[in-house]
Design a protein around this nucleic acid. Sequence first.
RNA 1: GCGCCCGUAGCUCAGCAGGAUAGAGCACCAGAUUCCUAAUCUGGGGGCCAUGGGUUCGAAUCCCGUCGGGCGCACCA
Length: 583
Amino acid sequence: MTFSAPRPLFAEFAAVIDAALDALVAAGTLPGDLPRHAVTTEPPRDPAHGDLSTNAAMVLAKPAGTNPRALATLLAAELGRDPRVVATEIAGPGFLNLRLTPGAWLGELRLIGQAGADYGRSAMGGGSVVNVEYVSANPTGPMHMGHCRGAVVGDALATLLAFAGHRVIREYYINDAGGQVDVLARSAHVRYREALGEAVGAIPEGLYPGDYLIPAGQALAAEFGDRYVAAPESEWLALFRTRAVAAMMAMIRDDLALLGIHHDVFSSEAELQATGKPALAEAWLRAHDLVYDGLLEAPKGKVAEDWEPVEMPLFRSTRFGDDQDRPIRKSDGNWTYFGADLAYHFQKAETADALVDIWGADHAGTVKRIRAAVAALTGAEGHPKPFEVKLVQMVQLLRDGVPVKMSKRAGTFVTLADVVREVGKDVVRFTMLSRKPDAQMDFDFAKVVEASKDNPVFYVQYCHARVCSTLRKASAEGFAPGADALDRLGDEELALVRLAAQFPRVIEGAAQAREPHRVAFYLYDLAGAFHAYWNLGNDRPDKRFIVADDQALTAARLFLAAQVGQVIRNGLAILGVAAAEEL
RNA sequence: GCGCCCGUAGCUCAGCAGGAUAGAGCACCAGAUUCCUAAUCUGGGGGCCAUGGGUUCGAAUCCCGUCGGGCGCACCA
């Protein structure tokens, strides 16, 4: 993917600094082979320090055999030649601070206008393919709130990576091969008999009692009549399993659609096994002495009453950092979940340059073994495929501060569909993204829908709505945004531009760290700055966007407002949250 | 017992591949305002970044130990 728009300001100056370093190398004042990956170009924390700050002198001084301030002086002289740089200052231990002409920032504001929905889009990913696997909920029932966070985080991450220049595959792994789907099939059989008029009474212990299987039973009754009512299980189990899984997946897709989530690829574990992928993986691993027949260790930390040593094919995951070797087949010869999952990751790696899995924290214990498997299966040439497991921590549901009780056995879990219907897609998504994923979070129905500035979702959306309403009002009064007189903008306005100009940096940083929540926090900051600017107009009519007797100034301010709105819109698009035009 | 995650203001949380005086919102305190630029605004106090060591020019950030909370620990998925 090529992206030929002008570079955003921060990227531009990173290049300027790089070129200045090149000049120092050419002049012989700096060795040519210094690693520059640690050199940063960023806004100083304290705006009084200037517009841009680089740590280049501090990072490079030691390997260059000089001291930071001396190097900074040389670098400052070099950078001072850029016409956009009005001042250079050396500060603290060796920071080099730059002050830029207002024109440099106004140019960035114009760039936002030109790039529009593409502002912030980056070529960083270089078109490499990243497979993001997320949700992958078991196809035995509807989505519940336990799945929600991973679903939203994975989806936003996928969008973020695409925006940052990757080709992204959004994938869902259907666990349709284990004992649980047999239970599902038996449960469906009960509902099937029920649909044919049999009084089935309470759903037997060990089967899924949920009402959601009733339609599946009715569909089976409509399709097969009473053919399988009294038939032995062997005649209907596989059939009912296929039908029931398909019904559950249709339901899950509908649930996900409520959140705006759509996967590109649904991979079936059953199909994976049917096509012999785990066996191929096993053969390959055995050939490389990475699978052997051995005894499984006894479980740790639990009383193992019925523990007996059994010989099974074990994968040498300890060679790759796991705590013990893991079985890939059960003693009955069937694949373990891990045995199939290992083959599945191998399959994914065939079509992607990097893999990311989004898992719930309750699966944290299995991270090491799957990382080991990917390292083993893709690392034969010494270059294992980049693979990350991102864990999302638990969400506690609250209603007015009181925990919502959930019991799977009693069937009283809170479904995702219910929550989305109650509070809305945008609230669910933004809330799930307003905390770093590796920290636990509370989701309080009452707080999350509150329409006040204390609610970040509302705060950000209100910013966008405010921009829209300002533009509407201006239009009605005969004003339009325009970039002809941007030099009329003053310090307060430029502060807003500086913040908006950070969006491309935020995108790249968030994509690199695989942390979409950073975008949410940035949007909150930008919205805060916009609201603060807006409030200036309360006491000072000359600071309002519309200044009735000054056409040129109004056009420039409206242009600024429009671009802030654009950045908010672009950010919300990554989060999958609607940018409301009015509230 | 072991592994992983977390511990930052009274509360809820940020802190961007170690960087300058650790930030925001709520709550609290003090002012302003009843305007329609709108679900009020402005300012202020408040921190041994759980704790003890280590690494270095520099640590909330990296390493080790301790304490506290969460999740998990056969062939389940």
